[in-house]
Design a protein around this nucleic acid. Structure first.
Lengths: 328, 328
DNA sequence: CTGAAAGCGCTAACAG
DNA sequence: CTGTTAGCGCTTTCAG
C-alpha cells in the first residue's frame, strides 16, 4: 500500500503538506499543491482511513440495529438509512439483534471499540441504563427507548383508531383485532387505539382480540380460530401487514369472501400488501421517510456534537386497496 | 476512554505485558497475569479496535454488496451472511449498489481505505478488471463474476428445466415464460433452461416468452398481456417468485382460475410465495445456506490467506404449493 | 518472564 | 507558506 510518505517523497514536500492538500486546510502554495496532486494521481494514492480514525477517534461509520432484516418492514428502513449515511460518506453497518438484549449489548460494545460514530436503534429491550454507557449519539427508531434520546416514530395509537374508524365507515358491525407479540411496544399502542374505538360498543367482547406474532403463519392460525369462533365478524384490524396477509389467507381457506363478507385492514404499508390477492388495505407508514429522517438526525447530531433531543412523529395514511369494501 | 496505558499503570507492568495477556500470546507469569486481569476488570477496559486495525492492516470487517436490499430475495441472504460473520467476530457492512457500476467502484475503494477484510458480491456489472485492483479476498454470490474468484451459485438452468418439466408432468400443454431484466445474468440462464424444454415442442412460439423485470407490477402487466394475447396458455414459469406473484395477480384480475385453468410456478423460494393466495409453487433455492456458505468461504480465505478458488453450486428444489394443479 | 522502544499512517500544533 | 515533531492506542521485536 502506498502511504502519505511516498507521496511526500515524490512531491518533494513533507507529509504535513500532503496532509494539508488532502484535507484542503491550511495554506499551501498553489504550485506545490499542484505537485502534490500530481504525485497523488501518479501513485494512485488513497489515504488510510484507519489511521485517520485512530487519530480522530471517529470512524465515519453508523450502525443500524433491527430485530431481523427478514421481517419485511425493515429492508425499506435499512435502505433509507443506508442511502443517507452513504450520501454523507458514512459506512453503514447492519446488526440483527433478534430482540435479544445480550446480542444488543455485545454489538454495542464491539462497535464502540471500533469508534462507530452513532447508532440508530429499533429495540424493545434496550433501556436507559444500557445507553448511559454509550458516548456516541443514538437515535431511537420506531419505538421510544428513553426520554433523553432523539426518536422517530409514527402515530400508532391514532393510526389504529383511524383504521377502526375506517372499518366502521364502510359499515363493519363486528370488528376484531389481531395483535402482535407482547414484547413489542407497538403492539400495546395499536391495541390501545383499537380499544379506544370499540370498548364502548355494545357488541364488543374481549375475545375479539386475538393474540398473534409478527409472523404470517401464526397470524393465519389465529385468524382462522377467530373467524371460526365468531362467524359474525365482518371486519379485522390486523396489527401489521404481515398479519393482515395471514388473515387474508385464513379467510380464503375458510371460503370467506373478502371484501364482500369480511373487510381486512393492516398496518405498516409494506410492499407485501400489494402482492396479495386481494391486495391489502392498510394504514401506511412513510417507511423510507422515517428511516431517512432518523439518519439525517443522527448525522446532524454527530456533526453538531450536540445533545439537543428531538422527537419526530410521522403520520400513517390510509391506503385503500381491495381487502376492504368500497365506501358508498 | 481508558487505554492500555491506564491498565499498565494500575497493574504496575508495561503495556507490552498487558498486550500479552490481552492476546494470550507470549509468556507471562500467572501472578502478574492475574494482576493485569484485575486491572482490566476494574477499569472496565476494552481495547481500541481502530488502533489494532492500524497495526495489523486488517479491520475485522466484511462487506456484502447487493443490488437492493428491498428486493425480497436479499434480506435472507444478508441475514445469513451477517450471522456467520458475526459468529466469527467480524463486523458486517451492507452496501446497496443498484447494479450501478459507479456505486460499486466507489464502495470498493472506500472500503479498501477502511481495510475491510473481504467482500461478498452480488453483481452483474463488476468485471475481472475492476477486481484486479482489490487485494482483499472476494466471493461472488448468485452470479459468477470471474473464473478466478470463488463463487456460490445455484443450478439455474437445470432448475428452470425442472420447473418446466414439472408443469408438463401436471399436464400443462402450453407453457409460457416471464423472464427477468436483460442485464441480470440469471435471466438468460433460466430462459435457456425453459428453451431447452420447449423449443422443440410443436406448440411453441416465441411470443410465449414475455419480457419482465424483477418487479411485481411490471410482471403483472406483462402477464396480463400474455394471457390476453394467448388464452390457450395453461402454464407459466416465472423467472422469479416476485414475478410469479405478479402472474398470480394478473390471473385473478382476468378471472382465470389458478390452478384449475392455469398453473404458475416461480423460482427462488422467498417467503413472499407463502403469503399469496393461492400460495406459489416454486423452485426454491436454499437461500440461507447459500449466504452462509459464501460467508464461511470468505472467512476461510481471509484466515488462510490463500487464493485457492472454490466454486459451490447448490441445487434448487421443487416446492409444491397451491398455484399448480396437483399431480394425478 | 518482562520492559523499552519502534512503528502502523495520519494530523495538528508549533516553529520557522 | 512549509517542515519538524509528537502522538492517536496498540503490538511486536529485541534486549535483558
Amino acid at each position: 500500500m502506498t502511504t502519505i510518505k511516498d507521496v511526500a517523497k515524490l512531491a518533494n514536500v513533507s507529509t504535513a503538506t500532503v496532509s494539508r492538500v488532502l484535507n484542503s486546510n491550511g495554506y499551501v502554495n498553489s504550485a506545490t499543491k499542484e505537485r502534490v496532486k500530481q504525485a497523488i494521481e501518479q501513485l494512485n494514492y488513497l489515504p488510510n482511513d484507519v489511521a485517520r480514525s485512530l487519530f480522530k477517534g471517529r470512524s465515519k461509520m453508523i450502525a443500524l440495529f433491527v430485530p431481523d432484516i427478514m421481517n419485511p418492514y425493515f429492508p425499506e428502513l435499512a435502505r433509507a438509512v443506508e442511502d443517507v449515511t452513504n450520501h454523507h460518506e458514512y459506512t453503514f453497518v447492519l446488526c440483527n439483534t433478534d430482540d435479544d438484549i445480550e446480542k444488543e449489548l455485545t454489538y454495542l460494545s464491539a462497535l464502540q471499540q471500533k469508534s462507530v460514530d452513532g447508532f440508530i436503534i429499533v429495540s424493545s429491550t434496550i433501556s436507559e441504563e444500557h445507553i448511559s454507557k454509550i458516548n456516541a449519539p443514538i437515535v431511537a427508531l420506531d419505538r421510544i427507548l428513553s426520554s433523553n434520546l432523539s426518536s422517530v416514530t409514527v402515530n400508532n395509537r391514532e393510526g389504529a383508531r383511524q383504521a377502526v374508524q375506517y372499518l366502521k365507515s364502510i359499515e363493519c358491525k363486528r370488528i376484531a383485532h389481531i395483535c402482535g407479540p407482547e414484547h413489542a411496544g407497538n403492539t400495546k399502542t395499536r391495541l390501545q387505539g383499537y380499544l379506544d374505538e370499540v370498548q364502548d360498543e355494545n357488541w364488543f367482547i374481549s375475545s375479539y382480540i386475538s393474540p398473534g406474532e409478527f409472523n404470517f403463519e401464526i397470524a393465519k392460525q389465529s385468524a382462522m380460530k377467530l373467524l371460526n369462533d365468531h362467524p359474525e365478524i365482518d371486519g379485522i384490524f390486523a396489527g401489521n401487514d404481515l398479519m393482515g396477509a395471514g388473515a387474508l389467507s385464513a379467510a380464503a381457506n375458510l371460503g370467506i369472501n373478502v371484501p364482500a363478507d369480511l373487510s381486512i385492514i393492516g398496518f405498516d404499508g409494506i410492499a407485501l400488501g400489494e402482492t396479495t390477492t386481494p391486495s391489502l388495505t392498510t394504514m401506511a407508514q412513510p417507511i423510507y421517510d422515517i428511516g431517512s429522517k432518523a439518519a439525517e438526525m443522527l448525522v446532524q447530531q454527530i456533526s453538531d456534537n450536540q445533545t439537543s433531543i428531538k422527537s419526530e412523529e410521522f403520520k400513517v395514511v390510509l391506503t385503500e386497496r381491495q381487502s376492504t369494501r368500497a365506501r358508498r
